[in-house]
Computed example of a mutant assay.
Amino acid sequence: MSKITYYYTSVSSNLEIKKHQQKIDMILSSKKIDFDKVDISTDAEAKNKMRELAGDPKALPPQLCNGDTYLGDFSAFDAAVEAEEIEEFLKLK
């Protein structure tokens, strides 16, 4: 099974992005879901890959993938959490 990749930025003046990233971090960690965190602010190649996987040349973090399968952005993640379908959303089942 592939590993969850969580694209984020450590450099953002956007408070909303920071809050969304903190929530994803907190939820994945609390559910003991193993994930790789990739900082797109220090790696242009990672940013390009994130945007390529998302199918959006302007996609902003946070974005989630399972291997090379694009899962969604924060709003998709948040909806899955609300519906208690996080494992399905992350394709862990």
Rank of each mutant, 00 (worst) to 15 (best):
residue 14 N to H: 07
residue 50 M to A: 11
residue 57 P to Y: 10
residue 25 D to Y: 03
residue 45 E to F: 13
residue 8 Y to A: 05
residue 80 A to I: 01
residue 92 L to R: 07
residue 62 P to W: 03
residue 37 K to I: 07
residue 39 D to M: 09
residue 71 L to C: 05
residue 61 P to T: 11
residue 58 K to N: 13
residue 29 S to C: 11
residue 9 T to H: 04
residue 86 I to K: 04
residue 79 A to Y: 03
residue 78 D to E: 13
residue 23 K to G: 00
residue 62 P to A: 05
residue 61 P to V: 15
residue 17 I to F: 02
residue 63 Q to L: 10
residue 6 Y to R: 01
residue 85 E to C: 11
residue 11 V to D: 12
residue 59 A to Y: 03
residue 65 C to W: 01
residue 83 A to S: 12
residue 58 K to R: 13
residue 22 Q to K: 15
residue 79 A to S: 10
residue 81 V to R: 05
residue 38 V to Y: 06
residue 78 D to V: 03
residue 65 C to I: 00
residue 31 K to Q: 14
residue 22 Q to H: 10
residue 24 I to Y: 04
residue 10 S to W: 06
residue 38 V to G: 00
residue 80 A to F: 06
residue 79 A to M: 07
residue 13 S to N: 11
residue 74 F to P: 00
residue 28 L to I: 13
residue 60 L to G: 05
residue 13 S to T: 12
residue 6 Y to K: 02
residue 12 S to I: 10
residue 89 F to L: 06
residue 75 S to K: 14
residue 9 T to Q: 03
residue 48 N to H: 11
residue 62 P to I: 04
residue 9 T to I: 07
residue 67 G to L: 02
residue 58 K to G: 02
residue 44 A to T: 14
residue 60 L to F: 05
residue 45 E to I: 15
residue 72 G to W: 03
residue 18 K to I: 06
residue 36 D to E: 15
residue 88 E to Y: 10
residue 63 Q to W: 09
residue 82 E to Y: 02
residue 34 D to E: 13
residue 41 S to G: 06
residue 55 G to Y: 08
residue 42 T to A: 10
residue 26 M to R: 15
residue 78 D to P: 04
residue 85 E to Y: 00
residue 84 E to V: 14
residue 79 A to I: 00
residue 68 D to C: 05
residue 91 K to I: 13
residue 23 K to I: 09
residue 46 A to E: 05
residue 4 I to Q: 05
residue 21 Q to P: 02
residue 93 K to N: 14
residue 85 E to L: 15
residue 93 K to Y: 08
residue 93 K to A: 07
residue 40 I to D: 08
residue 17 I to S: 04
residue 10 S to D: 12
residue 85 E to N: 15
residue 47 K to V: 04
residue 31 K to M: 11
residue 56 D to P: 07
residue 6 Y to T: 02
residue 89 F to R: 06
residue 20 H to T: 10
residue 16 E to P: 00
residue 90 L to Q: 00
residue 43 D to Q: 11
residue 44 A to P: 03
residue 27 I to R: 08
residue 34 D to A: 09
residue 75 S to L: 13
residue 79 A to D: 06
residue 64 L to H: 03
residue 13 S to R: 13
residue 27 I to D: 01
residue 24 I to C: 00
residue 14 N to D: 13
residue 52 E to W: 12
residue 19 K to P: 00
residue 58 K to M: 09
residue 8 Y to Q: 08
residue 29 S to L: 14
residue 49 K to L: 14
residue 4 I to V: 15
residue 47 K to S: 07
residue 30 S to M: 14
residue 41 S to N: 09
